[in-house]
């Protein structure tokens, strides 16, 4: 399990559409918004999956930018016994 969070910068005209489209993606949970920016929490099986998803969202029409805020990847680093 990898949990991360993003800030997504949206264009004003497509803000609602982007929000709707992001909400439809099961791994993504929109948690906050301000000034056409969205805060989102992402749960994936791996960092690779999270990064792929970030690239996908970054390429969506009306998305002006995507920044990573946090990245928790304990399961990828520590043995399960730990």
């Amino acid at each position: 399990m990898v949990i991360s969070s993003w800030v997504i910068h949206s264009s004003e005209s497509l803000f609602d559409k982007i929000k709707t489209n992001l909400t439809a993606i099961p791994n993504i949970e929109i948690t906050d918004e301000q000034d056409f920016k969205l805060a989102a929490v992402i749960e994936t099986k791996s960092t690779a999956e999270a990064a792929d998803l970030a690239s996908h969202v970054r390429g969506m029409e009306g998305v002006n930018g995507l920044d990573i805020v946090s990245h928790f990847f304990e399961d990828e680093t520590l043995d399960k016994k730990e």
């Binding site: 949990i3 969070s5 800030v7 948690t31 906050d32 918004e33 805060a39 929490v41 946090s70 928790f72």
Partner: peptide
């Protein structure tokens, strides 16, 4: 935790 730091960044 992830949500709260994202909100703080906003």
């Amino acid at each position: 935790a992830a949500a709260s730091v994202a909100a703080a960044s906003l």
